[in-house]
Design a protein around this nucleic acid. Structure first.
Lengths: 229, 229
DNA sequence: GTCTTCAAAATTGTATCCAATTTTCGAATA
DNA sequence: TATTCGAAAATTGGATACAATTTTGAAGAC
């Protein structure tokens, strides 16, 4: 177990180990592979992944700063279980930020952008008719991504939105599993597009807030099951 | 709040070096003691502070995640200079978050809270009459702090607001140096109090947004000098 | 049976070491 | 003089060593 270390030092693709560890753990957490009950200690993780504690620590600190794990009262960390309240608040903050973003967008959106957004909605509608829920999810994601790109010049706002969305991702997919939720989501997107067409900042902000609040309700609905057990 | 019920056997006296380094550097940056042009390297910093590179790295990563320093194209970091645009956006995001926060607050504020806020305004007014600008600053800060505490049960929103405000701090003081700006600020606070008294969520949100936008203008005014040179 | 006490085990924090990589800078060359 | 080349210096990433602290768990006291 000693000389093995030398070979792993030679890193040809030059992706830092710390980054790999971070990505690996994040993916485990978001996918649910890592259980919120589990205790995480530096040494254990390091051994698990065959690396030293140094990069593990750095990954842990980063995950903590993003709220994906929490320091334990004793030692070590645990995967933060989203309480119902936390999920609610996450959506609430998203509704504020993205609502404001849509206001900004409405002031500068072009006809071409509107066409593009419309395209995604139509694609999603088609997929919905064919009951391909996964595809609906894909197009809806595109819709939101496009909106986010349209505020990307507000760099800090953009970053906050993207980072919030990553955290919400695990709930989002569940929501759309039901074709009922998918229908509601699509409906929301249509309303958003309309508000954008009218170029009414006030309406845009309100519509987006409502949309995300609806998404919140859907997410909570699916969460009930999770917390019941 | 947090579970303060931690065991008394936990050793609180030993502050980690990494934390000290972090605090030290942050304070240097926010106070302007550390020049935005300067290049920061792990080793140099470590030597400066008489510690090893390990805690320095961890502090650097944290500072980076908070946007106070930026990785250099080459190696090392530099203190991020706030561009005019960045400052503007910082205030803009604050206006969104705090605007929403005031909306929330308006739904649950008590007569006692209103009295307290009113007290701070009066104190600030008195100080202003006596031309004690520093004191005005103090009472105005108290006013905002009190508002922030009133949303502290929305833990994540609260954290975001507090963290944004820390970054803005260095601009804020400059603003209030002019008794003109101080007067405008006080005026804004009075309007906020009024909106709260009326318990009108819509008005509250709008008023707070306007207030922070005003503060932004004042801050930019003082920044012009900085960027001219 | 419950409560102390204390030493071993686990865990973290920091320092140091070594390898890899990038930058710098001066000498050789056209 | 400008350019290129390469070796030394600077810097970072990661591993390991070690000390300090906390947790655990078991033996002994009551």
């Amino acid at each position: 177990m000693k000389t093995v270390a030398t070979q792993s030092r030679v890193n040809k693709n030059s992706i830092p180990v710390r980054k790999k560890v971070y990505e690996h753990m994040k993916s485990d957490i978001l996918s649910g592979r890592l259980n919120p009950a589990e205790r995480l200690t530096e040494e254990h993780l390091a051994e698990m992944m065959g690396v030293s504690r140094t990069p593990v620590r750095e990954a842990l600190y980063k995950l903590e700063s993003e709220g994906l794990i929490k320091p334990l009262e004793t030692r070590g960390f645990i995967v933060s279980a989203d309480s119902k309240e936390e999920v609610e608040e996450l959506f609430e903050i998203r509704s504020i930020l993205e609502g404001y973003a849509l206001r900004i967008i409405s002031e500068k959106i072009t006809e071409e952008d509107l066409q593009r957004l419309n395209g995604f909605i139509e694609k999603a509608e088609e997929a919905l008719e064919k009951d391909r829920i996964n595809e609906v999810f894909k197009w809806n994601t595109r819709f939101h991504d496009t909106l986010h790109e349209l505020v990307s010049e507000k760099l800090q706002l953009y970053r906050m939105i993207v980072s919030m969305r990553k955290n919400v991702l695990r709930h989002r997919k569940d929501t759309l599993q039901s074709s009922d939720g998918a229908k509601r989501t699509l409906d929301g997107h249509r309303k958003i597009l309309l508000a954008l067409r009218l170029k009414d900042p006030e309406l845009c902000e309100r519509t987006m807030r409502d949309h995300i609040k609806q998404a919140k309700e859907d997410a909570l609905q699916t969460l009930i099951g999770v917390y019941k057990k």
